[in-house]
């Protein structure tokens, strides 16, 4: 019925120009695993679709050395999983990205799309937040960088300015003794959406936590960086008291809603449980490094 323009530019400049020119009537297509569903449901009715998968920078994975990586926003979960070294440095980020959708969806879905979809339940986002990823954004006014947790603005909304496109995620260098992990609670074993998502990233030295970051999803309008939980872990040996304090911080950070995917009470409880479980996995991985 309605005509839709489909553009597949080969440079970022072209994409930004077209996106800005469409002034709100365009949508960016990475994997399309959210966009096409929304279009089919009649929620999204874009006049123009700008496919960013033909832009080399958006589909590249760059090993920056020392555990640092730059991942193009449109890299699919399946491609990231096949990278020879990424999953060894960032197993938590990889397991989170690989939880988006089904096997088939993994061939398309990308961390950039997962972030820009703006869902507080997006699986890759808490892991990226825990990792301390920085997002490169390009728009009509040039390039800028934002910590990943600053990108979401609320359910279905981001802090991107009109015409801005997410280009890449940069993950920082890994000190020795670092490990990350992601766990989510879903009622099923797969093919589901997180009721709570938890990313934990730790750096350990002699069994003591030197650095920690905690990303918490699906319990507030946006994915949260829970700094109080990190503080509760830093300087400890992850003893029960420290874990309980971090769990309490996670529970305190929750501002969930009752909805079809979970109740307020249940989500708050689960946030604490997952903190302990995820931290244990991250610590084990940190010890193995």
């Amino acid at each position: 019925m309605t005509d839709i323009r489909y553009l597949a530019p080969s440079t970022l400049d072209e994409a930004v120009r077209a996106f800005a020119a469409a002034s709100g009537a365009a949508r960016i297509l990475a994997g399309g695993t959210d966009l096409l569903v929304q279009m089919r449901a009649g929620i999204a009715k874009p006049g123009t679709i700008i496919d960013i998968k033909k832009i080399p920078e958006l589909t590249a994975i760059e090993d920056l050395g020392g555990g640092a990586y730059r991942i193009g926003a449109a890299v699919s979960g399946a491609v990231l999983a096949e990278h020879p070294t990424f999953g060894k440095a960032w197993p938590g980020v990889l397991e989170a990205v690989n939880l988006i959708g089904s096997k088939q969806v993994q061939g398309r879905a990308s961390p950039g799309g997962n972030l820009c979809n703006g869902s507080p339940a997006g699986d890759s986002v808490p892991a990226m937040v825990a990792a301390g990823a920085v997002v490169t954004i390009q728009g009509p006014n040039g390039r800028r960088e934002l910590p990943v947790e600053k990108v979401p603005a609320g359910p279905g909304r981001t802090n991107l300015a009109p015409g801005e496109i997410v280009v890449a995620f940069t993950l920082p260098q890994r000190p020795k003794g670092s490990g990350d992990a992601y766990l989510r609670m879903i009622p099923r074993t797969e093919m589901d959406i997180a009721v709570v998502g938890m990313g934990v990233n730790l750096t350990m030295e002699g069994g003591v936590v030197k650095a920690a970051r905690v990303g918490l999803g699906a319990v507030a309008p946006t994915v949260l960086l829970v700094e109080d939980a990190a503080k509760a872990l830093i300087g400890t040996k992850l003893d029960d008291t420290a874990l309980e304090a971090a769990a309490a911080a996670c529970r305190a950070a929750c501002k969930p809603i009752n909805d079809k995917r979970g109740t307020i009470a249940y989500r708050i409880k689960v946030a604490g449980v997952l903190l302990k479980r995820t931290a244990a996995i991250a610590a084990r991985r940190a010890g193995g490094n």
Partner: peptide, 23 residues
Amino acid sequence: LYDKNGRVDNASFLDYRMPVCSD
């Protein structure tokens, strides 16, 4: 699941949770 107006709130296979194979 119903909303307060008596409308089904989970009319999809995503949120009407039938078991999947791995369950």
